[in-house]
């Protein structure tokens, strides 16, 4: 039975300790539904690990292994090798996942290794754009201009001054057969992409954009609305790279993008861009760069890259 395009089975139990309005918890529900019951999950240290397993309790209804901060991809490699040796690699899905801190920064070397070896597993990053579990420190995924505890905004600072790392293209350089960008604002799209990643043989990757009301200082009720807005403004374009070819899902028209200001002004982490006075220069810079990035993706898609 399916409800709203998703399987009815639930693999994450109620009573987990996520904050109210946690986008990553919705993300995990999507990931587990896409993986299904014949799956082994591997997870790095991060919010979801902490909220799902307050020892001796567990929220998981699937086999789940907690590795260290950096190595869920290496553990997944080992599991996939063991399944291959037993001749049952087609029956069981190996899904590794971690937050953006583990994926973009600490575990990148291990992920690169697993992708280079071509191990058969799917890696999913629930991307909430900072180290939220340890108290909102900047990560390689934190966007330009966002205030975090280690990139605080102030009189002399506009928050983080570096642009977000382009993880999908880093992994695309490893010639992975399937990579995708998804958002919890579009759950059926995200579900289909995760399914596709799991069904594709070889190392595959999905970056799943997930809101964090605690770290972004946004309204918990607007978690899904924000995840949608990020796509509609072009900040988080949804696209796939299938065997090296780009397919852009949305947005597809640069002239119809909503202004990034709409997305920025509802989040406390960008408050300094609007108060005490509006910083037009910074907002324009973000707007231009968002358009440039999208134009590049659309060009890749058009020219068959």
């Amino acid at each position: 039975m399916a409800i709203a395009g998703l399987p009815e089975e639930e693999y994450l139990s109620c009573g987990h300790r996520a904050c109210a309005g946690c986008g990553a918890a919705t993300a995990i529900r999507l990931i587990t539904k896409a993986a299904g019951k014949n799956s082994i999950l591997v997870e790095s240290t991060g919010c979801i690990e902490v909220i799902s397993t307050p020892y001796p309790e567990t929220a998981w209804k699937l086999p789940w292994i907690h590795g260290a901060f950096e190595n869920p991809s290496s553990i997944a490699s080992g599991i996939s090798a063991a399944l291959k040796a037993k001749g049952i690699e087609d029956e069981i899905n190996v899904v590794a996942f971690g937050g953006d801190g583990s994926t973009y920064d600490i575990g990148l070397g291990h992920i690169s290794g697993a992708f280079e070896r071509g191990d058969n597993f799917t890696y999913i990053c629930y991307d909430n754009e900072a180290y939220m579990n340890t108290g909102i420190q900047r990560s390689g995924a934190t966007p330009y201009g966002a205030s975090t505890t280690t990139s605080p905004a102030g009189r002399e600072s506009i928050g983080k001054v570096e642009w977000k790392k382009d993880i999908i293209h880093i992994l695309a350089a490893h010639k992975s057969p399937y990579l995708a960008s998804a958002s919890i604002g579009y759950p059926t799209d995200a579900f289909k992409k995760i399914r596709k990643a799991i069904e594709t043989k070889g190392p595959t990757f999905v970056n799943l954009f997930a809101t964090c009301p605690t770290g972004w200082r946004s309204d918990p009720a607007k978690s899904i609305e924000l995840a949608k807005l990020a796509v509609e403004t072009g900040v988080v374009p949804l696209y796939e790279i299938i065997n090296g070819k780009h397919v852009v899902g949305m947005p597809r028209d640069i002239s119809k993008l909503k202004p990034v200001e709409e997305y920025l002004k509802v989040q406390g982490r960008y408050r300094h861009l609007f108060r005490p006075e509006k910083k037009e220069m910074e907002i324009n810079f973000i707007q231009e760069r968002v358009k440039e990035n999208l134009a590049l993706l659309l060009e890749y898609a058009e020219t068959g890259h």
Binding site: L6, C14, H16, A20, R29, D219, P220, A221
Partner: peptide, 30 residues
């Protein structure tokens, strides 16, 4: 509502309609 709830605490009733399980609902308002 069921597909987006971070808790997964929205229950399908016998008549097919959906309601939150207040034992677990954290009241986020999504």
């Amino acid at each position: 509502c069921w597909s987006l709830c971070p808790e997964g605490c929205i229950i399908k009733r016998k008549d097919g309609k959906f309601e939150a399980d207040l034992d677990y609902c954290k009241g986020c308002g999504i």
